[in-house]
Design a protein around this nucleic acid. Structure first.
Length: 447
RNA sequence: GACCCUAUCGUCUAGCGGUUAGGACACCACCCUUUCACGGUGGCGGCCCGGGUUCAAGUCCCGGUAGGGUCGCCA
């Protein structure tokens, strides 16, 4: 029988990076084994569910490219779905839970208590066989010792997580439960429930958690906790996926950058690490740079234009050839697309401030006549190309008896306002004679 | 408080009883270079502590310590 795995998030309004990694590992395992990946929405807590919150989950998974074989198609709880085990929203499966609870009740395995229904939990330790962690003997805690039973249906008739989780795993024929290690202790309850229903428990694989850089638990508020923040910050999903694969799993051959196909090929449950991992933003940034550099041009332009639009710059007001030429000078020189509007904004506006440190260093009296001479040399160029600009600048430098850098720095600052940026000669060519010379003229007034 | 999991450079990791403990990110230096980035070379830096077992322990066992998780009519 082919594995059937599921990602079962609850709609809290955001998708945690750790949840995304759990989804990824489930998806990878399904792909690796030719199994089925199911998306089930655990929206039993009516108080904090909303269609928007569900949309966040679907959008996040789609952005990462984690397509599901069974589950909802839209964020609408009564909307269409794919697969034969629906509904895939737990809020729509109440009759099923009701029947299961009644079955336990009638067999004396559960009982009513203050309007709620409690499950009769065994007092003996439970053996959890985990593919990742190994065999774990879970004893009762002191509080559980006092009352080992737990609520499976609230007094308002709504079922509780432990119950619905197990019932749906049974109903949906889940063979492998791959989830965060925060569920390991609860697994004893789940195993007891499976026994009560007379169904063998699935295989369990509890994966380590993702922690903050300082080792503390990564909660909602922490930087980088939300998957959506990576989309907002202009990361590439393939970089995020690649990075997430490296947290708690390793290809073991000293490689970091892996294609999805290779990862699917190599991924398996037993080699998942047992210890938690801290999130390293710098390493993600490095992978982002790796993927950004080799982005196909069409996608690069699309993302770049979008990044500018988001920053309030409509690049469509400029000729397409100009935009593309401008972007070509930037490719591979920045990492996240969020950086781009600052990096190359000078192509799309004539008003900008000069970098203060740069101005202090380069806009000094002795550079003014030099910049004037360079401006004149540029003005005499017939074809305003990078090669000709470079030749003119170097000739001018020789004539003045200075190194090229002496002219390069003030010139860059004059035409871009920045001390760093694309290749000077290429950006001048793209900018064109008129703008380039005008900006140099204007800068000389700032000395 | 109880129960469970974990422990290799700052971080992510390789390691499966015998290694000069390897790689990546970050950091530092140098090279390349008009800036930045890329690339190249080199460097810094680690087996949590204490007991065992063994000819031999990062690797196995026990204890400690530290970190994380769980014990809800949240999921």
């Amino acid at each position: 029988m082919k594995p059937r795995v599921r990602f079962a998030p609850s709609p809290t309004g955001f998708l945690h990076i750790g949840g995304a990694r759990t989804a990824l590992f489930n998806w990878l395992y399904a792909c690796h084994t030719g199994g089925t990946f199911i998306l089930r929405i655990e929206d039993t807590d009516a108080a904090r569910n909303s269609q928007e919150a569900i949309g966040v989950i679907l959008d996040g998974l789609r952005w990462l490219g984690l397509d599901w074989d069974e589950g909802p198609i839209t964020a609408e709880v009564t909307g269409p779905s794919k697969g034969d085990c629906g509904p895939y929203f737990q809020s729509q499966r109440n009759a099923i839970y009701q029947r299961r609870v009644e079955a336990l009740l009638s067999r004396g395995l559960a009982y009513e208590h203050e309007g709620a229904v409690k499950f009769k939990m065994q007092r003996e330790p439970v053996l959890i066989k985990d593919v990742v962690v190994g065999e774990v003997v879970r004893k009762l805690t002191d509080r559980e010792e006092a009352d080992p039973d737990f609520v499976i249906m609230r007094s308002d008739g709504q079922p509780v997580f432990h119950l619905v989780n197990v019932v749906d795993d049974i109903e949906m024929n889940i063979t492998h439960v791959i989830r965060g290690e925060d569920h390991l202790s609860n697994t004893a309850k789940h195993i007891a429930l499976f026994q009560a229903f007379g169904v063998p428990a699935p295989h369990y694989a509890h994966i380590p958690l993702i922690l903050n850089p300082d080792g503390t638990k990564m909660s909602k508020r922490d930087k980088g906790a939300s998957l959506a923040s990576y989309l907002d910050d202009g990361f590439l999903p393939e970089a995020v996926v690649n990075y997430l694969c490296l947290l708690g799993w390793s290809p073991k051959d000293n490689r970091e950058k892996l294609s999805l196909a290779e990862t699917i090929e190599r991924f398996d449950l037993p080699q998942i690490l047992r210890h938690n991992a801290r999130f390293d933003y710098e390493k993600l940034l490095w992978l982002q740079g790796e993927y950004a550099r080799e982005l196909p041009n069409d996608r690069f332009y699309e993302m770049a234009v979008h990044a500018f639009a988001k920053a309030g710059t409509d690049t469509n007001r400029f000729p397409l050839d100009y935009v593309k030429a401008a972007l070509d000078t930037c490719k591979g020189k920045f990492k996240t697309f969020k950086e781009l509007p600052d990096y190359a904004g000078f192509y799309f506006r004539d008003q900008f401030d000069y970098n203060a440190d740069g101005a202090k260093k380069d806009f000094i009296p002795e550079n003014k006549p030099r910049l004037q001479k360079l401006r004149d040399a540029f003005g005499n160029i017939v074809l305003f190309t990078a090669a000709n600009l470079e030749a003119a600048l170097k000739a001018t430098a020789t004539e003045l008896g200075v190194k090229a850098g002496v002219l390069v720095h003030p010139c860059r600052l004059a035409v871009t306002g920045n001390t760093a940026g694309p290749s000077l000669y290429h950006l001048l060519e793209v900018l064109g004679r008129e703008k380039a010379l005008a900006r140099m003229d204007k800068a000389m007034g700032a000395f």
